[in-house]
């Protein structure tokens, strides 16, 4: 009977990305040894996430309330919108503590091969936010890959006529790396984007 319970948990854990059978086994035994309160809190957090998570009607971020905490925060600079592909990207930008504006999540990136067209992303909503006024700058923080670049270019074409400043996050070498190991495209982009000191 105990084996069945453990096996069931292991099977469920292997459904998580990057978790194989052995890792799932390790996690299952870790949970087994947790105090009951901690295990309960973990289970409740998962259930809460599924029951309460929703998309913010303003920025499409995932939150437990609509509008989300960031959109509700009066201290945020609403004249600057940072555009990202996925809600998880917001966490990465927030970790920098450099940006005090608001966000807009596209929920994906353009991809001709996969048939992901502009109407399947939250681009229309972004244009609407800019048209409503009060926005001075839109910072495009889509991924620096082909899909992200295409998306950024498409949005730029839509926003430029609206008279808003559109900027793109910089390209370059990661801090702590060595030029010797950089590939030619990254290095040429970082040379193009050099700045005077």
């Amino acid at each position: 009977m105990t084996q069945n319970i453990i096996n069931n948990l292991i099977t469920q854990l292997t459904r998580l990305p990057g978790v194989g059978r052995k890792s799932a086994q390790r996690l299952a035994f870790f949970i087994l040894n947790l105090p009951k309160d901690d295990a309960q809190a973990l289970a409740e957090a998962i259930v809460d996430l599924k029951e309460k998570a929703r998309f913010c009607s303003i920025c499409s971020n995932i939150a437990d309330a609509d509008p989300c905490d960031i959109c509700r925060d009066e201290a945020r600079d609403r004249s600057r919108i940072c555009v990202v592909e996925e809600p998880s990207n917001i966490l990465a930008v927030e970790r920098t503590r450099c940006f005090r504006g608001v966000y807009h999540v596209l929920l994906g990136a353009l991809s001709p091969i996969d048939g992901i067209t502009p109407d399947r992303l939250k681009i229309k909503e972004l244009v609407g936010r800019v048209q409503n006024g009060g926005v001075e700058e839109v910072i495009l923080a889509t991924n620096p890959n082909t899909k992200g670049e295409m998306t950024a270019r498409h949005i730029t074409e839509l926003l430029k006529p609206l008279g808003v400043r559109v900027s793109r996050i910089a390209y370059g070498l990661p801090i702590g790396s060595d030029i010797e190991f950089a590939d030619e495209v990254t290095l040429s982009k970082s040379l193009e984007g050099r700045r005077e000191l």
Binding site: P112, T146, E149, M150, R153, H154, D183, E184, V185, S188
Partner: peptide, 16 residues
């Protein structure tokens, strides 16, 4: 990389 063909990706219309 032997040839990146970056110019094809840089141009929206060409890449589409």
């Amino acid at each position: 990389i032997l040839r990146p063909f970056q110019t094809l990706r840089d141009d929206y219309t060409t890449f589409v």
